[in-house]
């Protein structure tokens, strides 16, 4: 177990180092951040002073070494644009993204799993066929277009829900959250639903496939023969066995939602980390981009660990293997 964990850590570290190299070289190839940031009316001496202040006057390899030195001291550098600690900026934004991603995940599970179970149990029911058709739409419509349509319909035409921003927030555990206020929930609903649309379809289809696969198996017949109620058979025995692939996929989906909620966040002006990273790439704000990607890698590693743990709980076979 320890050996396995160590291997995981080394792999992740290697990924992080490679990623920072790619970002350094890549952003440098796009252009010079000073060309974007520098004041239009500064003379050469004033420009050089600003460049030196950001450390951009040094050769790239030296900038990279300075960055590595900073990392060793848990300092990922200052944002070129905001003049704040890059990590602090990201951590300030992450709760908004987490909130959105978890809300989307919640919707996906709450809507997708029951519908999927139904569709799996009654594959020929007209409702099931309708759901399957609808899920294709959920898969194939681009999220940004659906988001625009949602704003047009629910915000502008009907005026039911706000079109942008986070609304009122309330502090909990030292962080501002939207879901603790009614106004915040209203602001949350559309972007979360937009982000969840793809996931609902995915969960629905996975659950349906799982149920179809599990239903004909011997233990289900046995459970029925034992006289368990159909509800109990479905909820306890079938559902549990369909959960394993679902958990893997959902965890990976959660990771990518947190990392790349960029489109939804931009369209709904949701002040999360995705919007920050997009703005930062546009301004070649390297410290923020690097720090953000490091956070993303860490999130994926942690999620992987959680998934492995969940396997352990859900699948007795893993437990037996581990105890051997």
């Amino acid at each position: 177990m320890i050996g396995w964990a160590l291997r995981r850590m080394t792999q992740s570290l290697l990924v992080i180092v490679l990623m920072t190299l790619v970002v350094f070289i890549g952003l440098n190839a796009i252009g010079n951040p000073m060309d974007i940031l520098v004041g239009e009316d500064l003379n050469q001496a004033e420009r050089l002073q600003a460049i030196a202040h950001l450390g951009l006057d040094k050769p790239l390899w030296e900038q990279y070494l300075i960055f590595l030195k900073g990392v060793a001291h848990a300092n990922l550098g200052q944002s070129f644009v905001y003049h704040e600690d890059a990590m602090r900026l990201i951590l300030q934004r992450l709760p908004a993204t987490f909130e959105l991603a978890f809300c989307a995940l919640f919707l996906a599970v709450v809507i997708g799993v029951p519908l999927g179970m139904f569709a799996g149990a009654y594959p020929d029911h007209p409702l099931s066929r309708l759901m399957m058709a609808a899920s294709i739409v959920g898969f194939s419509l681009p999220a940004f277009w659906v988001a625009l349509m949602m704003i047009m319909l629910f915000s502008i035409k009907l005026g039911w829900l706000p079109a942008s921003g986070r609304g009122e927030t309330r502090e909990w555990l030292g962080v501002q959250w939207s879901w603790l206020t009614l106004d915040g929930l209203q602001h949350l609903l559309l972007p979360a639903l937009n982000l969840a649309l793809f996931k609902i379809s995915l969960v629905l289809r996975l659950t349906r496939a799982g149920v179809r696969e599990v239903l004909p198996q011997e233990f289900v017949k046995f459970a029925r023969a034992k006289g368990l109620s159909p509800m109990r058979v479905m909820c306890m025995h079938v559902m549990r066995n369909t959960m394993i692939p679902l958990v893997t996929v959902l965890a990976m989906e959660l990771g990518s939602t947190i990392a790349y909620a960029v489109v939804t966040e931009s369209i709904f002006s949701w002040p999360g980390a995705g919007k920050l990273i997009l703005d930062s790439i546009n301004t070649l704000d390297r410290p923020v981009v690097v720090a953000y990607l490091m956070v993303v890698v860490v999130i994926f590693v942690v999620l992987n660990l959680i998934v492995d743990g969940l396997y352990y709980l859900l699948d007795p076979r893993v437990r037996i293997e581990a105890s051997r």
Partner: peptide, 18 residues
């Protein structure tokens, strides 16, 4: 005082009453 970078989003926010 809210930052809404995209022009279409600003229009939508005004029309939605945000």
């Amino acid at each position: 005082y809210r930052f809404i970078a995209n022009a279409a989003n600003r229009t939508a926010a005004l029309l939605a009453g945000d």
